[in-house]
Design a protein around this nucleic acid. Structure first.
Length: 90
DNA sequence: ACTGAGCGG
């Protein structure tokens, strides 16, 4: 279950998200998108959970949640484009 | 090296 989370504080780290999402299910992976030059968290990231139900529970529970002074924006991540092995084929 | 809409590897 790929989950997209944004509107994070610039001080928010992976462990913070990990702790928050772990409350609603098993977090498979946590990836914070960092800047290329400064290496600081850009304010958004991706969360992978073990199951879809846990992901929905995390989204429902953590969306618009106040974290470090910012309201989290949690939603389902978009499918990434692929050369030819990607879902819809038209 | 920075800042506030946002979808990465």
């Amino acid at each position: 279950m790929n989950i997209y989370v944004s509107n994070l504080s610039f001080h928010t780290t992976e462990e913070t998200l990990k702790t928050l999402f772990a409350q609603y299910g098993n977090v498979s992976s946590v990836r914070l998108i960092t800047d290329k030059f400064t290496g600081s968290p850009r304010g958004f990231g991706f969360i992978e959970m073990s199951s879809e139900e846990e992901g929905n529970a995390a989204i429902t529970g953590l969306n618009n949640k106040d974290v470090e002074g910012r309201s989290l924006a949690v939603s389902v991540a978009r499918p990434k484009p692929d050369n030819n092995t990607s879902g819809r084929r038209w």
